[in-house]
């Protein structure tokens, strides 16, 4: 197994773990962490792909893509954390309430029946 394959396989595994965590964990901060893990997995894949030929200088384009991706990811993380703070301020917890506002009207309707 080449160095690249090793990194690529690991990145895929990390991505899957992140994906599982993102869906399975209810706490919003954990979800946000999971997103960052998934993002890192993709960055790992790109960085390792940039230097598949160890003798040549690395491909700069994936590096640039990763830098861009990190900035985007930071921006999203910052906003997501701020939004979590607001949810915490409004609902008193850092979880998503499990019933939907748009549906709750329906539910009352059914109960009345």
């Amino acid at each position: 197994m080449s160095q690249f394959s090793l990194y690529a396989v690991i990145s895929m595994l990390i991505f899957s773990i992140g994906l599982y965590g993102f869906i399975a964990h209810a706490h919003l901060v954990r979800k946000i962490l999971a997103v960052n893990i998934m993002g890192s997995a993709i960055f790992l894949l790109l960085i390792s792909a940039a230097r598949r030929d160890p003798t040549a200088p690395p491909d700069p384009v994936p590096h640039a893509m990763v830098l861009t991706g990190i900035v985007v990811s930071v921006s999203f993380t910052a906003f997501a954390l701020a939004l979590t703070r607001r949810i915490y301020a409004e609902t008193g917890q850092a979880y998503l309430p499990e019933t939907e506002p748009a549906i709750s009207a329906q539910k009352q309707d059914i109960v009345q029946k």
Binding site: I23, A24, L96, E98, T99, Q106, K107, I110
Partner: peptide, 14 residues
């Protein structure tokens, strides 16, 4: 309608 409500919980949707 209940099904739609269930689809909406994050774990199920995910």
């Amino acid at each position: 309608i209940r099904l739609e409500g269930r689809l909406n919980t994050w774990v199920v949707a995910g």
